[in-house]
Amino acid sequence: MIKRANAVMAATACLLFATGSYADQPSPWQINLQPAATPIMSQIRWFNAYSLWFVVPITLLVLALLFVVMIRFRASKNPVPSRTSHNTVIEVIWTIGPVLILLFLAVPSFQLLTEQLTFPQNPDVTVKATATQWQWNYEYENSGDNPLAFDSYMLKEPDRAAAGKDDKSIYPRLLAVDNEMVIPVGKTVRVLVTAAPTDVIHSFSMPSFGIKIDAVPGRLNETWFKAEREGIFYGQCSQLCGKDHAFMPIAIRVVAEDKYKQWLTAAATDLGKANKALMAEVDVPAKATDVAANVTQ
């Protein structure tokens, strides 16, 4: 009984922790940035926290000054207003102070921009993402003589069962897609982003990776990332692109390199079968559920 209880507790813990870490997606009442999955996003999260050390005191100071002015210098309290035209000390302070604050903000922000815009010389994987109203098309440019290409649509509710994506904790409503972009963990991925020539401007945005870049018709933009952990990560088109703009999600599945190579080979002949085989291997929460069920029997 003790062994069975321990096994149940272990399986339950695996289920809970796997579900929480497996899919990065927006959460109810979320006010902070999503957890970082790339080094760039880690720096973005740090800079966000760093800038708050300046933003919060300035906001509180301005609020306090407003109350002081409203209370101390109201008409009933000061029937004869001051006619002071300038104050040298105050003018020096409010000139030098903001300059120093801007310098403390500018230096790390320029360093972050440099990191973002310094593209790796030899990326491990190159994927071209083409946007249209209202879907994404992915093309793996270094996948052999016949590049792998497929469309990625938002998964509709009636199609969940057939796709094997009933678990909304992993495949959330309005974010899950029929075919995710699959990439290997720990590898540098270059993403070429564009839109169909006759389409409108879209935007490729993945919060956990710290990337956001416009997809412009007739123009090829470039970004990159290096995912440090496995899982499914969700983003969306973040440029207003028409009536179904809200239904144009982005899903990226990060897997181990060996699983990625197996999927890439299988997807060249049968994408649907390759996706289901990959899901069977990497959907950790589903496996944890099965383990818990078997242990309790």
Rank of each mutant, 00 (worst) to 15 (best):
T88G: 11
G272A: 00
A23D: 04
P123T: 08
L264R: 08
H245V: 15
E222H: 03
R45G: 01
N275G: 02
Y171C: 01
E222R: 13
F204A: 01
T59G: 15
V125D: 09
Q133P: 04
S152L: 08
W224T: 14
L66F: 08
T269C: 03
F110W: 09
V182I: 11
M41V: 04
F150G: 07
F119W: 08
G272V: 02
S109A: 10
P197R: 07
A149G: 02
L16M: 15
K128M: 14
R229G: 08
T289P: 00
R173N: 12
E222A: 11
D244S: 13
R45M: 09
V284I: 13
V193K: 03
R72M: 09
L240M: 10
L220T: 10
N146R: 10
D199T: 00
K226Y: 11
P207I: 01
P108R: 00
Y153C: 02
K261F: 09
A163G: 13
V291K: 05
S169N: 13
P158A: 10
A7N: 10
E141W: 05
P28R: 06
I101H: 07
G144P: 03
T126L: 08
K243L: 14
C14S: 12
A251G: 12
Y153M: 08
A163F: 15
Q116W: 01
P28H: 06
E180R: 10
E257Q: 13
M181W: 05
R219H: 06
F104P: 03
K165Y: 09
V107A: 01
V295S: 08
D258N: 13
Y234F: 11
Q262P: 02
W263S: 05
N294G: 06
W136M: 07
Y138R: 14
N32T: 15
P39C: 04
N32S: 14
D151S: 02
S51V: 01
K77A: 12
I201A: 00
A11M: 04
A196T: 01
P39A: 06
L63C: 08
R173F: 11
D24A: 07
G20T: 07
W136E: 05
E91P: 08
L60P: 09
F209C: 01
E180W: 09
Q30V: 08
A5G: 06
P81D: 08
N6W: 14
C241H: 01
A75K: 11
L52M: 13
A163P: 13
M9G: 03
P108D: 00
Q297M: 10
P158Q: 12
W53D: 03
K165S: 07
Q116D: 00
Y234S: 04
Q239N: 14
M279Y: 10
T19S: 09
L117E: 00
N6C: 14
W224Q: 15
W94L: 10
P39F: 02
L60I: 11
S76Q: 04
Q236P: 01
A251M: 12
S27C: 03
V193M: 07
V92P: 03
P217Q: 00
S85V: 14
